[in-house]
Amino acid sequence: MSTEQPLLRVRDLETYYGKIQALHGVNMDVYAGEIVTLIGANGAGKSTLMMSICGSPQAQAGTIHYEGADITRAQTYQTMRSGIAQSPEGRRIFPRMSVLENLLMGAMVSKPEYLDEDLAKVFALFPRLKERQHQRGGTLSGGEQQMLAIARALMSRPKLLLLDEPSLGLAPIIVKQIFEAIGELNKREGLTVFLVEQNAYHALKLAHRGYVMVNGVVTMSGTGKELLSREEVKAAYLEGGRH
């Protein structure tokens, strides 16, 4: 895989919140067609990396290349129009818009003629959303909001889907459903997924490759299987995570 050019390449990335440095030189790659996961403790900098890729906040040093183009200094809205979509931490559903309107927001950057087809696709993936399409986003359950956040991201027809902790706070059965949906999208449509998780066991089982982040730097990488079998990973991220 290393001979071809990665879809996303992050090098020596440093991001600050004011004077506080959150990323201390992050390196990672995502190749087209892969599911790559990033695991790490709370506060490690995973969400910061996700958001830096989208330019919010912008990184202060290092580079981010997407499809070979440098997007380190791109405006958020430009990056999101170039084929990257994110389902962010906390889901960030528009609470006073209906489910359908939330999905239409996701379709903002895609061509209008794809709308019906794409709506049908995400409704097939998450039938619950179809039932609730006229309900306000703020009234959905946590699991439904997560489905909506992923569906909304998919509505832009991304090449690269960034998912920040889609399992957070959800019942195991819903987590399973969501992870299956991600796996299916990847297999069927070749969607490239970069998945941040604290739920390391499920994430590493699903992913082709994984990275471990500690205090703003990547400390380990390998295939999902390799990382699952590493003692350090087991000790730090897998106790009690095996549900």
Binding site: S56, R92, V109
Partner: peptide, 16 residues
């Protein structure tokens, strides 16, 4: 309305 409810998320969906 999206900018009104969550400006950061609106930007993440490609809104200028």
């Amino acid at each position: 309305r999206a900018c009104e409810q969550d400006r950061k998320m609106a930007a993440l969906l490609g809104v200028n």
